[in-house]
């Protein structure tokens, strides 16, 4: 084995972080936000929607969850241009950039997982809470907005954050679309300079430190949140 070249890592730091990690974190945060919103809507549709809506939401979740993320990434990469064409009435499939395609994929994919978390959360709120809200004259939307969901988010926050750490790791799979996320950036330098050992070891270390730190943070939060009630 040739000497481990720390210099190559040092020289590529700004590219790795300002290009790669910025993409990874942006994708993670926007996907988590979109996924939680869509997931919450799905959960509510399943628990309180009409039979058709509930069945559609359940079908959606049960369709997405058995699929590997890699396959879903490919699906949307090819499907989104056609969806765009259909939506805009354009004459040919519209061009969608890698970021938009990846973002749509992750929101749609993660929503299925977030919806299961939210469903468990809503189910854990005592029925009396909804009854009390209704008795006070709140509509379903109001009782969800002001009474139920605030409690659910508080209880499920550690689980939502843990899922977001998983999402953070999963964004590395946009590698299959040749996108320059953190791993993509590391990979490009690795292949250009023939420094796979250095770049992949460094990428692994960075992912580990970030995920581990974040999960320790969630653990602390869990301990703090767990006390009341």
């Amino acid at each position: 084995m040739s000497q481990f070249d720390f210099e190559i890592i040092h020289r590529s730091l700004s590219y790795l972080f300002f290009e790669g990690m910025r993409f990874t974190l942006t994708l993670t945060l926007l996907s988590a936000l979109g996924g939680v919103i869509l997931g919450t809507l799905l959960a509510m549709a399943r628990m309180a929607g009409g039979p058709v809506l509930a069945a559609c939401a359940a079908g959606y979740v049960n369709l997405v969850r058995p699929l590997p993320l890699v396959l879903v990434i490919f699906w949307f990469y090819f499907l989104v241009p056609y969806l765009g064409q259909w939506l805009t009435g354009a004459s040919r499939p519209i061009h969608v950039g890698g970021f938009a395609s990846a973002l749509i994929t992750f929101i749609v994919f993660e929503a299925a997982y977030f919806s299961e978390i939210m469903r468990a959360g809503i189910g854990s709120i005592p029925r009396g809470q909804a009854a009390a809200a209704t008795a006070l004259g709140l509509t379903y939307r109001q009782s969800m907005r002001y009474v139920i969901l605030p409690q659910v988010f508080r209880i499920m926050l550690p689980v939502l954050l843990t899922q977001t750490i998983v999402l953070f790791q999963d964004t590395s799979l946009v590698y299959v679309l040749s996108i320059t996320d953190f791993l993509g950036a590391a990979s490009k330098i690795a292949q250009r300079d023939g420094r796979l050992v250095e770049m992949y070891s460094f990428a692994a270390l960075v992912y580990f430190i970030m995920s581990f730190t974040a999960s320790q943070g969630v653990r602390t939060l869990r301990a703090r949140v767990a006390v009341p009630r």
């Binding site: 084995m1 790791q169 590395s172 050992v197 992912y207 580990f208 995920s211």
Partner: peptide, 21 residues
């Protein structure tokens, strides 16, 4: 913690590209 805090893809690259070296 070691195996949970690295993306699977990165772990595969470690086994495939780094481990033999």
């Amino acid at each position: 913690e070691l195996f949970r805090n690295m993306p699977l893809l990165v772990q595969l690259f470690l086994w495939y590209f780094v481990f033999p070296e």
